[in-house]
């Protein structure tokens, strides 16, 4: 993996992104704006399941309102994230937070899909699953920021230590 990261970091595409000074800040900013979209969409779905917000609408309507925003913003997040990985593969692949983030991200997406399968049919979705989904996404955002601080956050557990 280390070799792969170093090979990727030396490819012309990676070097092009690294050497375009404004590109990484721009991609990170778009990434954060999209985090706002996906996080609030997930938050409102979860609050609907918990009976806190949008109780005037059936579950299927709330799902239809937010699911497309989740799908589109996650697509943009995946795309900007992929370019950011290509630009700094060593930094990402040697961070504990990065791998943990990818794992929780997969769980977070599966968890939304599971909520959606109930909400779409107006069936009562599991409340613990809703809370778990929100916690997963909070952890994903936290770990995304923590990639830059792997040694500080994980201490001796960090691959960089």
């Amino acid at each position: 993996m280390e070799h792969f990261a170093q090979w990727l970091q030396a490819t012309p595409l990676s070097i092009l992104i690294q050497s375009t000074s404004w590109l990484i800040p721009l991609l990170q900013s778009i990434h954060i704006v999209m985090i706002g979209v996906v996080f609030v969409a997930v938050l409102l779905l979860v609050l609907r399941v918990l009976g806190v917000a949008r109780t005037d609408e059936p579950e299927s309507v709330v799902w239809a309102r937010f699911a497309p925003w989740i799908k589109r913003s996650v697509s943009v997040l995946a795309l900007t994230g992929l370019v950011l990985i290509i630009s700094e593969p060593v930094r990402e692949f040697t961070a504990v937070s990065f791998w943990l983030k990818m794992l929780l991200l997969a769980l977070g997406i599966a968890s939304i899909a599971a909520l959606g399968s109930a909400l779409r049919r107006d069936a009562a979705a599991s409340r613990p699953l809703a809370v778990f989904t929100l916690l997963l996404w909070l952890a994903v955002i936290f770990l995304g920021r923590a990639i830059a601080y792997d040694v500080e956050v994980w201490g001796a557990l960090s691959f960089k230590a």
């Binding site: 954060i32 704006v33 985090i35 706002g36 979209v37 996080f39 609030v40 969409a41 938050l43 409102l44 909070l138 955002i141 936290f142 995304g144 920021r145 923590a146 830059a148 601080y149 500080e152 956050v153």
Partner: peptide, 25 residues
């Protein structure tokens, strides 16, 4: 505190994302 900055920054991102997302709605 070595962990203070990453934790506070992450909370700041979560807060900013929530402000932006809710204002957007």
């Amino acid at each position: 505190n070595v962990r203070a900055m990453p934790i506070v920054e992450a909370l700041h991102v979560i807060a900013a994302a929530t402000v932006f997302g809710t204002v957007l709605v």
